[in-house]
Simulated scan of single mutants.
Amino acid sequence: MKSINLQRTESLLMELIPMALSSLADTRINSLPITGVNCKNGKYDAIVYFDGSDYDKEEVKSIISALNKANGRIKTDVLASTGWYKCPNFKFELDTSLEKSKHIEDLFAKIKKTKSSEE
């Protein structure tokens, strides 16, 4: 279980990262939905998850590349907003939990359909 301070940090980053992204000129990432932040090693590393369900694999790769290039600017904005001494190193990853939950819902629908056709 995570400490309250770490959960608070993740919550704050969930608010600040989209604000930092919105100030960027790159249209691929300035309105990208951030779905989660997972801090590791205290506040030294953070995995930032985004919803890329509307993009194919090549577009996701270019989005991650653009996010990595903007990493310094995002960190600067977060530091300016929080007054922290140090900002976590951000690693950006595609959030696949939405796809998994949709797949599970589809399976439940199939099961329901199969059961109703058997009756």
Rank of each mutant, 00 (worst) to 15 (best):
S11D: 12
L13A: 05
M14P: 11
E15G: 14
E15D: 13
L16P: 15
L16S: 07
L16E: 12
I17N: 07
P18E: 02
A20L: 02
L21S: 07
L21K: 10
S22W: 08
S22C: 08
S23H: 12
L24C: 06
A25Q: 14
A25D: 13
D26S: 07
T27N: 12
T27E: 15
T27M: 12
R28C: 00
I29K: 10
N30M: 06
N30V: 02
N30F: 06
S31D: 08
S31C: 07
S31W: 09
S31M: 10
L32T: 10
P33D: 01
I34M: 08
G36I: 08
V37S: 04
V37E: 01
V37G: 02
V37P: 08
V37N: 05
N38M: 06
N38V: 11
N38K: 13
C39F: 00
N41W: 08
G42F: 00
G42I: 00
K43Y: 05
Y44D: 15
Y44T: 08
Y44L: 11
D45F: 08
A46H: 03
V48H: 00
Y49F: 14
F50C: 02
F50K: 06
G52C: 00
G52K: 03
G52A: 01
S53Y: 05
D54H: 11
D56H: 12
K57E: 12
K57P: 03
E58L: 14
V60A: 00
V60F: 01
V60Y: 04
K61I: 12
K61A: 15
I63F: 03
I63W: 06
I64F: 01
S65Q: 13
S65A: 12
A66Q: 11
L67V: 02
L67N: 05
L67F: 03
N68S: 07
A70K: 13
N71S: 15
N71G: 02
I74Q: 11
K75C: 07
K75G: 07
T76A: 15
V78N: 09
V78Y: 07
L79T: 04
L79I: 03
A80V: 08
A80Q: 12
S81F: 07
T82W: 05
T82E: 06
G83H: 08
W84F: 13
Y85E: 10
Y85F: 10
Y85Q: 11
N89W: 05
N89T: 11
F90M: 05
F90G: 05
F90K: 10
K91A: 02
F92W: 06
L94S: 04
D95F: 05
K100D: 01
K100Y: 07
K100N: 05
K100M: 12
S101H: 09
S101E: 11
S101L: 14
K102E: 06
K102H: 09
H103C: 04
